[in-house]
Amino acid sequence: MNKLSLIGLLSLVIRRDLVLAMRRRADVLTTLIFFVIVVSLFPLGVGPEIDMLRKMAPGVVWVAALLASMLSLGRMFSADYLDGTLEQMMLVPQSLSVLVLAKILAHWMVSGLPLVIMAPVLGLQFDMPAQALWVLIAALLLGTPILSMIGAVGAALTLGLRGGGALVSLLVLPLCIPVLVFGAGAVEAVVSGTNVSSHLSLLGALLVMALVFTPWVTALALRISME
């Protein structure tokens, strides 16, 4: 039998998920708008003093990114689960982990990457200095894929459950705390003039770890949930 190469499978699934996302653009925009609104609510809640806002900015942007990425997790597997595509994907004569990795990457491109692009604009609302904005982009680029990966495990575990959306946040948010700490820490470090690279390298280490383990764990979780 002819088998699909790993790269072929990866690109096929990513292209498919991107096409589907483009045909349902509203879903993508909802996440992004949610992110913008949450960030914009903070000054209304705590007052417009620019010094305080500047100090809060990294944390606010990161927490909002975390919440926004939770919002889109429900879509990662549930549509495919409901129409039976996931069953077919599990019968693909190729590693399920690679297929899952492709779905995670596609999910990140659709829901994580727009946040990274939008974040500097929101940073300006909080009067963040240019250097901090660059670090914010770098930290989000390293951190948001980890959120998608940890989120994938949660989404796979809660597949098809009632109230899956709230449950997945309950499972995933505590596990994302290290990303929040190092991500927001990196931006704060550049503002306070301390060493940025240690934060970013820790984030990078987390990214590598997540890249190695989460696709495999997600595949296992999917098998458990499909039974």
């Binding site: 589907l20 129409d83 595509t85 077919q88 019968l91 590693s95």
Partner: peptide, 21 residues
Amino acid sequence: GDAFYAEMIYLGHLNAIKDEL
């Protein structure tokens, strides 16, 4: 494992097709 999946095809209750495509 995969060697078996390469030699079978399964069609379930669900059609596994996407409305958007």
